[in-house]
Design a protein around this nucleic acid. Structure first.
Lengths: 344, 344
DNA sequence: GCACGGACTTGGATCGTTCCAAAACCGGCG
DNA sequence: CGCCGGTTTTGGAACGATCCAAGTCCGTGC
């Protein structure tokens, strides 16, 4: 009836022992006698006791939560990542504090500040585009275990920082896709989409360029097209691929959204992706398997990345003095029909 | 250097006032003199103070978090819902405690119990399939504001419960889809997919059946096909639609995943969806717009549902004694090519 | 009969913040 | 000079759990 919470004191009074004894029972200590334990446990059940972890954490000066801040939950890639993080944290008895930033660095600062007040044991951050490492350092302080996922904020001196970093092998992934297209006989291959200043786009472009040069081809400036990483903008910029005389016959796309947009744009110009023009993506979002044509892309297993990130941050919380780690997660080329077009 | 946290006591000592005064400044009380306030604020900045909300909440006997428990984060529908929840909670100064259950009622019990220990101000729960209302009542207690989203656990006596409920208008949605197909001339329309015992499937089947009867058609048993709500199982069961002599010419599908699976299954039998057979889905997941053919479906705006759920739970936390509310969110029929097939 | 040791149990202080009642300060007024 | 009212400030007790040093109990052995 009463809205008041049941506390250890209530239990202690209810069965005639001290608060300390109840606490021992709660934590499964071997100290209490079996009879006492039984008595206390009965009383706990009778009164419907619920442990107050906040109070315990306060006294013990530790934390049982980890903050997870993502730039865009509605992107399946990050949602899967979040699911992986939560899965691992939950299994370790931690609770996930969620924050999403909607790609706004300002909002990200506010969200982080608010989460910090809850004293998380660590933070897993997939930074908003345009994040500034200095501002992040300001809110996050010097002692908290931090893992940065997927993108590098600007102005971070990694060598001087204790932050962990986990990213996909963007460079190798793009190189794999490029080599795959080269093997199909393509020579004029574009790199299509993404913001050139973002770290992931830079890395992917680099992998692409390296693979091209390894095949003795120097990428032409007209083959590098920037777009917002969305289907819509990608579709809108399709034309810019075909403005020069050396129009490409294939494109390595920044990600799947861009690739799907490009295929839409190609269709609108009467070019059939997979037959007249080869396309690859990046991420292997669920749509990739069922688009028309199905999209050749790079699988990244975001859920496993989430588990990996959570494990790393837990390890870091246990032993704070281990050095920072840079993790590069492998990616896997999934070949589907969109890259079937060969150049003859 | 030291890992110790800066506390109000440190600040108080550092600028020669009492802890109580620092606390007043922190909370923006008008009481402290301007000069004192300035002095304290300077010291706060100097020492890099971070507010400890857990300690404050303990003293104030209130909570600044809301738990969000979803059955499947990797489903874009729920991820979007979560994004909406977090957006609204964050704006109100609450933090989101995330839990995901992977559709396992047992895991759900554990996750809820763990979240309860963090003393949330309320819980938003999208229950795992097969959740039992009695077991849920056990962990959730009697006083906590609870909002159940999207599915009804079994054995809940809503009339005797204070739980809020928010769901999509499944019945009307299915009826809209069915009427749409009827208008295209179809008479033999199946309801394809889903588990018949789940509450959402029941409601959708009901809307379908009502629309059919309103058109003077009694659905035949062979037109009701159960499947797991996945693409794979839906594709596998396509055959069962065509076993009887009165094979349907169109299908209202339980959701988009099922509809996409059905279209795959149709394709394998040489039936072209949208030309030879009309299909509708439910949810409007991103793939629906780009599948082949694009899928006619019902848009549910999960993000807005998330905001709505969060607002409701906050309202409930503010005034606990208002009666339970049942919210039914509207859905919108999106017509695309998959339902273009007409029956002539 | 009593000191001893092992098995349990316990009171009181503590974590970082807020509440509360009371105290200190201050200028003015009789 | 003392008192008054209003403004600021403050010490100490909470919140709910845990830590720790110091109990109590009880069976043994001498």
């Amino acid at each position: 009836m009463s809205g008041r919470r049941v506390t250890v004191t209530d239990i202690a009074r209810g069965c005639g022992v001290s608060r300390a004894t109840v606490s021992l029972v709660l934590r499964g200590s071997p100290l209490p006698a079996a009879a006492t334990r039984a008595k206390v446990e009965a009383e706990l059940k009778r009164q419907g006791y619920v442990y107050n972890r906040a109070a315990a954490n306060l006294r013990q000066r530790r934390s049982s939560s980890v903050a997870l801040v993502v730039n865009d939950l509605s992107n399946p890639f990050f949602a899967d990542f979040a699911a992986g993080v939560d899965e691992t944290l939950g299994a370790a008895g931690y609770v996930t504090l969620l924050g999403s930033t909607g790609e706004s660095p300002e909002r990200q600062q506010r969200v982080l500040a608010s989460l910090m007040e809850h004293d998380p044991a660590g933070i897993i951050l997939s930074p908003a585009e345009g994040s500034d490492g200095v501002a992040l350092g300001q809110v996050l302080g010097v002692h908290l275990p931090v893992l940065v996922f997927n993108r590098e904020p600007s102005h971070v001196r990694w060598s001087a920082s204790h932050w962990d970093y986990l990213a996909l092998d963007n460079r190798r992934g793009a190189a794999l896709a490029t080599r795959h297209l080269l093997e199909r006989g393509h020579r004029r291959i574009a790199f299509f989409g993404g913001h050139a200043e973002s770290s992931s786009c830079r890395d992917r472009r680099r992998g692409y360029a390296e693979a091209m040069r390894a095949a003795g081809i120097e990428p032409e400036p007209g083959w590098l097209v920037e777009t917002a990483p969305t289907r819509l903008d990608a579709a809108a910029r399709t034309a810019s691929l075909f403005s020069s005389r050396h129009a490409p016959t294939a494109a390595v796309c920044y990600n799947d959204a861009v690739a799907l947009g490009l295929m839409l744009g190609l269709g609108a110009r009467g070019i059939v992706a997979g037959r007249d023009f080869a396309v690859t993506g990046f991420d292997d979002i669920p749509e990739a398997a069922v688009s028309t044509p199905p999209l050749t892309t790079l699988a990244t297993d975001p859920r496993a990345r989430g588990r990996q990130a959570a494990e790393r941050i837990l390890e870091r919380a246990r032993r704070p003095d281990t050095g920072a780690v840079r993790g590069i997660a492998p990616v896997r080329l999934i070949i589907r029909a969109s890259s079937e077009a060969t150049f003859t």
